[in-house]
Nucleic acid binder design. Structure first.
Lengths: 190, 190
DNA sequence: GGCATAATGTTAGTGACTCACATTTTGCAG
DNA sequence: CTGCAAAATGTGAGTCACTAACATTATGCC
């Protein structure tokens, strides 16, 4: 019988928040590579070991991507007579257009750090592996050849990531806008 | 006053060859992650330290990419009234079409290992950073906007890499062919 | 207020990589 | 072929990310 809608956050939620907050802070101030997991843990009042109970690796403090379901749904709802490449691109457009605005500031902090850190750019790519697989499955389910689907997914995702990086650096545009522009580069017709 | 055109390889060349050979062998037999740098060094009759004198990191035994100059040249020679995206794609086509056949077997061994190892897929992407920068510079030098150039380069390179992976796994096609097909997915017109 | 359980800590170890310094090999000049 | 500078390699110690087994403490609920 809870009284209000907001209760005191559990300890787990609090340490998670502390790790994320101090992690981002240290990354921004000293750089990702120069920041040690032990330092983050210490700042959050916790042990190195505990950090790894919350994140499987240092880089996962920055890499999340829980957007796959919306993405594949958006691709699925594109007309299936389009070429896989165009279909995937339009799906991504639609998916990001409906991204809630309030989330973007934190995304920007994260993406900016990633964009500035070579080792993380690679990590990001590895991380999109799941998203790529999801897109491929969706395209294949609608009749595309597996080979074609894989190339299309990889290429479109690369454009998306490139757009994200530009947005994080540029400051003045909105996320949806940056992504639209990135995909325009790839799709001949507007 | 050297007599013939081929001389005894220097010690440096011999240890380098030994490291590459035993490294590829171990990676193929036991897997990349399960293979230790110490094991490779030992198999090559050398110390772990020596390995790192030849390669800045374990992954660099597989990642080379000395193809940038030919690539940018090929892009430069594409008609400059094309959109940057199409220009980059056609340039890559041209560049790989002229790749010497004899080199492809060793490339295939390497790419196959990379394609099968998630951590290396990321490393590969990080590694293409230089190539991407080179392409961007070339496109910008010919009048493209930096933002557009970056998206185009990233996207086209992703298609290239996807094509490489497919080729490495499929066995039956030729390299140039696989890349042509990959780029066809991306370029509307053939 | 007590107790199951979740959260955290401890210790020890592996593997990639770095650095400072010592030793051996190689190739070439005399 | 002798010797010697430079190149190649070795040694030992250390850092950091990450893992695993086991001990301890804190939380929240009855």
């Amino acid at each position: 019988m809870t009284i209000g809608t907001d209760r005191r956050p559990s300890k787990r939620e609090r340490t998670l928040a502390a790790l994320v907050e101090h992690g981002l802070d240290l990354f921004e101030r000293r750089g990702y590579d120069a920041t040690t997991v032990a330092q983050i843990a210490r700042a959050a009042g916790v042990t190195e070991m505990t950090f790894f109970r919350y994140f499987p690796a240092k880089e996962h403090l920055l890499l999340d991507d829980p957007y796959d379901p919306q993405l594949t749904a958006a691709i699925a709802s594109q007309p299936s007579d389009l070429r896989p490449f165009v279909r995937a691109a339009r799906g991504i457009r639609a998916a990001w257009r409906s991204l809630p605005e309030p989330e973007t500031p934190i995304i920007r902090r994260r993406v900016r750090i990633i964009a500035q850190t070579p080792s993380l750019r690679g990590a990001m790519w590895r991380n999109t592996g799941n998203t790529e697989r999801a897109i491929v499955e969706q395209l294949v389910a609608d009749g595309a050849s597996p080979d074609v689907a894989r190339v299309a997914a990889a290429s479109v995702l690369a454009a998306l990531v490139a757009g994200l990086f530009l947005w994080a650096e540029e400051e003045r545009t909105t996320l949806a806008d940056a992504i639209e522009r990135a995909l325009d580069v790839i799709e001949a017709d507007a």
